[in-house]
Amino acid sequence: MRSDRVLRLPKPPRLYDPRGGRLPRHGKEFSLARPASWPEPSVVTVNDTARYGKAEARAWERLHPRLQQRSAYIDHDGELPVVEGTLITCPATAMHLRSGCGPPPPVPPRTTSTSSGRATCADST
């Protein structure tokens, strides 16, 4: 999913409002680009792995996109449907892979051809 997507939380529970009016169809915004808009996750799990170190995952339930266009629902009559799902995120620190084998092997130095008259790596050591 793109990092600039905006999803919607579930609609709030129905409360009596003496002014009347239409009930909300969507809850507050959940912008992937703005962590300040994220509520507390429904589920958080943290595991220590031998290969990747600390791995953390967070999940929010019942999020849905707010449909802006009817192109996918051209033959649908009435209001557009609300399709809810679960969003699972892994912070970037969990995505840095660690092989557990130490630092990568050194790159061998480049050598030059002796036929060109230039010095080789062996001559410089």
Rank of each mutant, 00 (worst) to 15 (best):
P108D: 14
P18H: 10
T93Q: 01
Q68H: 09
Y16T: 10
K28S: 15
V43Q: 11
T125W: 15
R118N: 15
S113K: 09
M95H: 01
R5Q: 09
P41R: 02
V6D: 02
C101K: 12
S37I: 10
N47S: 02
P81R: 08
V82M: 02
L67M: 03
K11R: 11
E56H: 02
C121I: 09
E79H: 07
G100F: 01
S113P: 11
R25C: 07
P103A: 13
L63M: 09
S113A: 13
P65T: 04
H64Q: 01
R70Q: 09
R34C: 00
M1C: 08
D75S: 13
T93S: 14
E61Y: 10
S3N: 09
P41E: 03
G27D: 04
G100D: 02
R19I: 00
R8E: 10
Y16K: 08
Q68T: 14
P10I: 03
S99Y: 02
A33M: 06
R98Y: 06
C101S: 10
Q68D: 14
L15K: 11
T93Y: 04
R98V: 11
P13A: 08
G21P: 02
E40N: 10
G53I: 08
R25L: 13
D77V: 04
L15E: 15
R70W: 10
T120W: 05
P91L: 05
V83G: 06
M95R: 06
T89L: 15
H96Q: 08
A33G: 11
L32E: 13
R34L: 01
P35C: 12
W38C: 06
